[in-house]
Design a protein around this nucleic acid. Structure first.
Lengths: 243, 243
DNA sequence: CTGGATATTATGTACAAACATATAAACATA
DNA sequence: TATGTTTATATGTTTGTACATAATATCCAG
């Protein structure tokens, strides 16, 4: 990856700067909370104007990766693991953007009969088997989320796919299915024995449950997803605006 | 609402322009798909520079309200008008819509010194007292949520208001403050003794915590709200769409 | 009448230069 | 010691200017 800006490169300078910054802030030095060099200095360092640099910075600030404070400086935003409904990033993309490397602890693929909720959501017969994908994921230190996904037969997944690739990438590129609409329900509960064991905590500890109903462009159901998050490492964020 | 830009107004010009544009594009003329005036012309019309105008336009483009096309023009995005404002119901309105009658179990109003989070969010000194409103609310059978709200001094609340009225009604009608933007963080935790007692459950039981940061039209902070919900009676739902 | 060169139009990119304002540290005063 | 005051620093705001590039409209030759 390039570590400096190339004025000959046809890629716009502010995009180059943006990419460069994305890498820069993954450095533990900055991810640890240290301020970036100030704008004037950084602009000089990259040999671009302050305006162009700010253009790049703005984008990262908008994405919530950086925070700025007038008179103080710019630094990497608190790397609290969170979910931003607005941007529609995949789990992996979002975590990577924050410099968090996701590790897969477990991965199971099976074919199962749908329970009532799922059969209803998919509008299929309860005797028709669906693909079930279970994943235990987290950081190097340990898992923090247990995912269960069910896929509508219409999608055409075989179960032989490489689920280490980003899910929505597989769906889009290999199955021409674009996830367009998602309805989510977030609730709290205490961990039962099964989930507690997976997430390496005591039964009874609070967990955050996220149910996700995913639809394609035609608003047809394609995925039902359950996520069980350790309460101590996940915050769900929402931004809403009225006009 | 102002229909032109006031260079005397301390509110930054690009924010004024942004607000103005938000109104402008509600006009059926533009919402119907007509192109806005071109940037150079519009800048002249508003008596601001093209850069400043673009700053405002960029924000709306980020939000997905406008789409631009090089060499062609800028217009209101196709699907932008649809579902956005859906979320903005007051707690009481929302519950009433579901046929749930809300009972106030407790209601306390006090003036307190803000902690660091609040002082930071409000951008005020930690020595400046703010109004704190605590409410225990629920159904006839029992409470299910404990709310704590802090209000920015700018709003002008005295503490003598009738808080049995809907909050946003008070703010709009009596204090000319319109809550326009809200950022929320949802997390899970187990109830401490205080909250457990309020919500009539055992300490250690899971609860859902909702932090809410509320802003007015000028994106100035006006309220910080904490909601502690019984996990067995509350689910948070979100709908998001990508275009 | 059609295809291709050309001009026009509007957004995209980039830089330079001031001045405004919030923050924090250094300093001075009561 | 406590409280202002100044100063250095960094981001925030605003303007002006110039040229690049994509999309569209126009015109001209064959």
């Amino acid at each position: 990856m390039n570590l400096s800006i190339d004025h000959k490169n046809p890629l716009p300078l502010h995009i180059q700067a943006e990419n460069l910054l994305r890498n820069m802030i993954k450095d533990p030095q900055y991810a640890g909370g240290k301020f970036l060099p100030n704008e004037v200095q950084l602009a000089k360092q990259l040999a671009i104007s302050r305006s162009t640099l700010r253009h790049a910075l703005n984008k990262l600030v908008y994405e919530g990766l950086l925070t700025r404070k007038k008179g103080v400086g710019t630094k990497v935003a608190e790397a609290a693991i969170s979910s931003k409904s607005k941007n529609w990033l995949s789990f992996t993309q979002e975590m990577t953007a924050r410099g968090i490397i996701i590790k897969n602890f477990e991965l199971h693929v099976t074919w199962v009969l749908p329970d009532e909720t799922i059969a209803n959501f998919f509008e299929i017969s309860p005797t028709k088997k669906v693909l079930k994908l279970e994943r235990l994921r987290g950081k190097a230190e340990g898992p923090f989320v247990y995912f269960i996904s069910y896929f509508h037969p219409r999608v055409g997944l075989t179960g032989e796919e490489d689920f280490k690739r980003p899910l929505y990438d597989i769906l889009e590129k290999d199955y021409m299915t674009v996830a367009t609409l998602s309805k989510e329900e977030i609730s709290a509960r205490s961990a039962d024995k099964f989930i507690a064991a997976k997430l390496e905590l005591e039964p009874g500890h609070p967990i955050l449950v996220r149910k996700r109903f995913v639809y394609d462009q035609g608003e047809r159901p394609i995925e039902y997803n359950l996520g069980y998050y350790r309460a101590d490492s996940f915050v769900y964020t929402v931004e809403s605006r009225r006009e």
